[in-house]
Design a protein around this nucleic acid. Sequence first.
DNA 1: CGGAATCCTCTTCGATACTG
DNA 2: CAGTATCGAAGAGGATTCCG
Lengths: 227, 227
Amino acid sequence: MGEKRSYGQYCTVARALDVVGERWTLLLVRELSTGPKRFKDLLEGLPGIGTNLLANRLKTLEGEGVVRRATLPPPAGSNVYELTALGRSLEPVIVALSRWGTRFLSVPREDDDLRAGWAAVAMRSVLGQGAAGGRPGTYEFRIDGEAFHLRVGAGEEGERVETRQGSAPDPDLVVVGDAETFLAVASGRLGPEEALESGAIRVEGERDEGQEALLAWYRHAIGPPAA
Amino acid sequence: MGEKRSYGQYCTVARALDVVGERWTLLLVRELSTGPKRFKDLLEGLPGIGTNLLANRLKTLEGEGVVRRATLPPPAGSNVYELTALGRSLEPVIVALSRWGTRFLSVPREDDDLRAGWAAVAMRSVLGQGAAGGRPGTYEFRIDGEAFHLRVGAGEEGERVETRQGSAPDPDLVVVGDAETFLAVASGRLGPEEALESGAIRVEGERDEGQEALLAWYRHAIGPPAA
DNA sequence: CGGAATCCTCTTCGATACTG
DNA sequence: CAGTATCGAAGAGGATTCCG
């Protein structure tokens, strides 16, 4: 039984792909990159994977130290899967793929699935491109009614960004919109100005100040349309 | 007939993987990342792929604008495959995977294949981590008798690095060694000092000055052992 | 509800042989 | 040398069932 297929190359890239190169695996990491999830949530976020394949991938990744099983603290108490430190260190891979994939996004195809979390991942991936000088802070996104927050910290080289599902306790800014709009903005297809003017994206709280801050942040983070 | 399998997700990561997520594809990009190659050379660098699969991948990637066919200028005149600009922009993906895969490298396994080019890719991927202040220049590596050169240019944010097969016309430094040693150094398993002292890696040209420069460069580029 | 196991069909892979 | 053709083996994927 599955003796673990390997490329059999003494090469850093091949070794990485031995672990995360199989079908679905990196998408599974993407799902967990915003926080722990139950088996059922993962199925929801990976339409078409099938329960057996998901279980297999999880088992393999757990064996390799990329994923870990955990139990959420009360009152939740659910069994979840989460990334280990090793798994979280795949972030640059996800970001690089996300940036590269942006140019293939165009518009949703017939039968394309769409999840709020994917828009959050896309938003995260367009950040931290500029060198220092970003705007550290916590930004909450409510995408199709689901909350995510991005913590932008001023690191040594470029910004350190973390995206997690759920509300932030102390957001500097709360932005509301739908997934397709956020993806359009992340891909550079829709300018933040137009998105705000048309009402496709709204800022909660003190409107004028918040809106100005968001625009400034967008402009810095996303930069000129489509790299 | 192969209607082109897709994850069917309106997501930047999934779209990227729709194009380069299949088995062998990113390794094929790795092979081409150091320069154009003939069909035969690609087979050599992807042991086990099978001619039909390689032909399929190349055709698909050509259709997607990642790879292009070209004819080398005389006197070579061979038909080769090379990356387009779109293909070259996959560099950050390869680098991210290579860095992540470094920790799985350890020592060659029984039956592991090993190619000089893979060591060059690994060397390239450990560069440009430090912020500005790197040492721009051209470094030639002769790995197992094969020549590669890395051009490090001082860019805006971090260094811009390009790796190509073949000799450089004007190398600032020529370093000679075998693939396994270079991979050990790239992975942080072997310090550059030890590698030079043991003679596993040699510097050509004016020894003392060159050796000092190489060491300084290594230290800056690679930094403290194993990030 | 969470997930493992089974069954069956289909596609892809991988190795070799064959052709322009 | 550069592919195409072929075919057995392995993996994907969808449904369904079983177990805690």
